[in-house]
Nucleic acid binder design. Structure first.
Length: 492
RNA sequence: GGCGGCAUAGCCAAGUGGUAAGGCCGAGGUCUGCAAAACCUCUACCCCCAGUUCGAAUCUGGGUGCCGCCUCCA
């Protein structure tokens, strides 16, 4: 029924996508740690996997999409200290801003969005079982995973334990307090004891909190099962985060954690990774102040997800200009001049696809059904089937936009535009036309212009025009006040 | 140091054996009272050097440059 190929980090190859259980797809993406504003890098990650889950649904799969929120972590605790707030307040605050940002970017909410703090008991249980199985050990209130007990450790990150130990030397030196608590420098914490007054939960090993990697292992187990289809995240999570998840889950369950591992590349600034620690990030809210959600999405999706994006205002501006072409073409889907039948059917089609269409219905919902739309669909689907190549898919959108502009037959033109909108929405573009939305600063300049023209009229003793302007502005709610030498205005 | 990845036009960016998608910018033209939009035309010997092949941006080896991970990170 399909031929989607995905690049699997585990094998390093592109493979045919075949779910474990019929057409059900269990998919998990590592979400944010909520300790600060989300930036473009986070936006890329969420938009990429948003498109992946949309496309899988389009392709007929019954997708369960889970994206977690890490709401307990050292960074949150540190942030809370710096702000004089509780960690819970910080986590909640940035969870809300994350949701807000994602909503603005038209990222669909996941089917489940577990938070680490909701799974503490199960994480403790998970840890207990690992200890019982001999894969973990307690050490002075901490619990560590015994890396040596999992012979496949390093299979995702393509690292050998020997290499890691060599590379870990510096780290050992900087963590001398841990050196004698851990059997091996490569061992990682499942449970960390809490200092006095810190955020903590009680456990068989005393007051403490879970290690970062544990939450994903626990939450996927309980929401998706011991083995699921897709585990996704940023490429910086390959090692150690996902490696450690594999170690925990597979050591405990004795079966693969996830069949496919997808990792997206970064947003770079001047060829360097955009990150909090580099201080070179643009928050989503900063970008949304200057660029529309569709512009940001188009910008992100014009690059294949496994390649780095070179961020610059120039590049974003180029995407904004490019989006204008798509919007103008899409406008033909709803701005019918005289096609009455289209007004009803066309609008209805667009309503139906407000969220998205499916591959099965795409053809039947095609109002044109000619060679052009047929080829467009084939090319678009081929691109997306090839490891979600949104860059090529978008190039097809532009090609179809060209057809819209060139087509003379009004019904066909509207049909092409309708198909364009349908597929653009599959990529999460809203195609909401914001070109007529005017901000208050612009409005102010326009009113000032009108006032200026009225002044000219008065100077020419053209009081008819002058009075017309006053009346029309009054109708619009704007009062003009002529005083000696100048005219001011205010909105009632 | 170990592991992995990338080098394509002024810029962004697809393309994994058959002679370079797309977008932005730029030039000329059509249209237009002016402008915008739209349309037409033009703009790349794919980092370097060897090799494999009838044929390579695409495969192999070497070189150069850049980046990521190995510590929190989407």
């Amino acid at each position: 029924m399909h031929s989607i190929n995905v690049h699997n980090t585990l094998t390093g190859k592109k493979e045919p996508f075949v779910p474990l259980n019929g057409n059900k797809v269990m998919m998990y993406a590592c979400g944010p740690t909520v300790y600060d504003m989300s930036h473009l890098g986070h936006a890329r990650m969420t938009m990429v996997y948003d498109v992946v889950q949309r496309y899988l649904r389009f392709s007929g799969y019954d997708v369960t999409y889970v994206r977690n929120i890490t709401d307990v972590d050292d960074k949150i605790i540190n942030r809370a200290k710096a702000l004089g707030k509780t960690p819970e307040q910080v986590a909640r605050e940035y969870t809300y801003t994350f949701w807000h940002d994602m909503h603005c970017l038209n990222v669909q909410p996941p089917d489940y969005e577990p938070k680490a703090t909701e799974f503490i008991e199960l994480m403790i249980q998970f840890t207990k079982e690992l200890i019982e199985k001999g894969h973990a050990y307690e050490s002075a209130g901490d619990v560590y995973f015994d890396v040596a007990s999992f012979k496949e450790y390093g299979k995702l990150g393509k690292k050998s334990l020997e290499d890691l130990l060599v590379g870990a030397r510096d780290q050992v030196r900087s963590q001398e307090d841990l050196a004698d608590k851990k059997k091996s420098p490569a061992d990682f914490a499942l449970w960390k004891s809490a200092k006095e007054g810190e955020l903590a939960w009680s456990s068989p090993w005393g007051q403490g909190r879970p290690g970062w990697h544990l939450e994903c292992s626990t939450m996927t187990k309980h929401v998706l099962g011991e083995t699921f289809d897709i585990h996704a995240g940023g490429e910086d999570l390959v090692f150690p985060h996902h490696e450690n998840e594999i170690a925990q889950s597979e050591a405990l369950h004795g079966k693969p954690m996830s069949k496919y591992w997808l990792h997206n590349s970064f947003v770079q600034v001047n060829s360097e990774k955009m990150s909090k620690s580099e201080g070179n990030f643009s928050t989503i809210q900063e970008l949304l102040a200057k660029f529309s959600p569709d512009t940001i999405r188009l910008f992100a999706l014009q690059t294949h997800y496994r390649n780095p994006i070179e961020f610059s205002i120039e590049a974003l501006t180029a995407s904004r200009t490019a989006l204008g072409r798509i919007l103008r073409a899409a406008a033909f889907a709803v701005n019918s001049q005289n096609g009455k039948s289209f007004e009803t059917t066309g609008q209805a089609l667009l309503e139906q696809t407000k969220n998205q269409i499916s591959k099965a219905t795409a053809e039947s919902l095609d109002p044109v059904k000619d060679e052009t739309t047929k080829q467009f669909r084939a090319a678009f689907i081929e691109a997306m089937d090839n490891d979600f190549n949104t860059a090529v898919a978008i190039s097809q959108l532009f090609a179809l936009a060209d057809k819209v502009f060139v087509e003379k037959d009004e019904a066909k033109r509207q049909g092409y535009a309708t198909v364009l909108v349908q597929f653009a929405r599959l990529l999460g573009l809203t195609l909401v036309d914001t070109r007529k939305q005017i901000d208050s600063h612009t409005v102010e300049q326009i009113v000032n212009l009108v006032v200026e023209l009225r002044q000219n009229a008065r100077s020419n003793k053209d009081y008819a025009t002058s009075d017309l302007i006053r009346q029309r502005l009054t109708d619009a709610g704007v009062s003009l006040m002529d005083t000696a030498g100048q005219t001011t205005w205010e909105k009632a």
